[in-house]
């Protein structure tokens, strides 16, 4: 499996996937910096909650959609599936490796976002010390939020990846991602929406702690079950 992972990671070299993973969290960090400048001075706790909420509310769902499409198009674009699936290797390994790569990329974006939040704080101390959030930088809280968001996003990510791989056209995956994000934005307030995969990441910063725990559990469990079903389905279907 390590070989499969190495091969999958190498395919990302010089690809738009890496650009996306770098740009998406950076946009949120920049936006957090702008908010800090324009708003009255906040505590780091509030700033962190706002920044991670912004990420999970719609940037993460949209980025996950784009990520799934771009990763799938690495094979769809040059019609490389035939070559891969004709090789004397178990097909489930190919799909499992790709699924793991996507999970790790989403995790990397969360880590990058956390580091960039700190960078925003350090830059603020140099440039506009009066606008820097007060208190110590909450590393533990940030790790908890972003780690939980990563776990809660797995259900959504695996669904989007499944659709992106199943159809050669990117349109079904894009439609699913946009629809899910629209639901998440429009209906976030409703209690029942925690069961919608696109709402699970943002539920981590909801006021109700039980909702956050439920979102994390559903996201991780849903992600694992969906990835197993996806691997089973794609490995069996005709190329």
């Amino acid at each position: 499996m390590l070989t499969n992972l190495f091969v999958e990671f190498r395919k990302l070299k010089g690809s738009l996937v890496l650009v996306l993973c770098l740009v998406a969290p950076s946009l949120v960090a920049v936006l957090l910096g702008v908010i800090c400048v324009r708003q009255p001075v906040m505590t780091w706790h509030d700033a962190m909650q706002g920044g991670t909420g912004l990420w999970a509310y719609f940037v993460m769902p949209l980025t996950t959609t784009a990520l799934g499409i771009l990763v799938a198009q690495i094979e769809h674009g040059p019609r490389a599936w035939d070559h891969l699936l004709a090789l004397p290797i178990q097909r489930w390994r190919l799909f499992a490796a790709k699924g793991i790569v996507v999970m790790l990329l989403i995790g990397s974006m969360c880590v990058l976002l956390g580091l960039e939040f700190r960078l925003v704080g350090l830059l603020g101390q140099e440039l506009l010390p009066r606008k820097v959030p007060t208190g110590t930088f909450p590393w533990a809280l940030q790790a908890k939020y972003l780690g939980s968001m990563w776990g809660a996003s797995l259900f959504m990510a695996m669904l989007e990846l499944w659709v992106a791989w199943r159809y050669r056209s990117f349109v079904p995956a894009l439609t699913l991602g946009l629809s899910g994000t629209f639901f998440a934005v429009a209906a976030f307030g409703a209690k029942e929406t925690v069961y919608i995969p696109w709402v699970m990441p943002v539920s981590i910063v909801a006021g109700d702690p039980s909702r956050a725990v439920l979102a994390l559990r559903l996201g991780v469990a849903g992600g694992m079950i969906t990835s197993l079903l996806m691997i089973w389905h794609l490995s069996r279907r005709e190329a």
């Binding site: 499969n4 395919k11 010089g14 690809s15 019609r79 035939d82 090789l87």
Partner: peptide
């Protein structure tokens, strides 16, 4: 098998393309 000439990864070199398949075939 050779099914489709374009079924290569444009962002990688020829050697890297071959190396990917070589690794999968151990």
């Amino acid at each position: 098998s050779l099914m489709e000439a374009r079924a290569t990864y444009d962002n990688l070199t020829g050697r890297e393309n071959l190396d990917s398949t070589r690794r999968l075939l151990k």
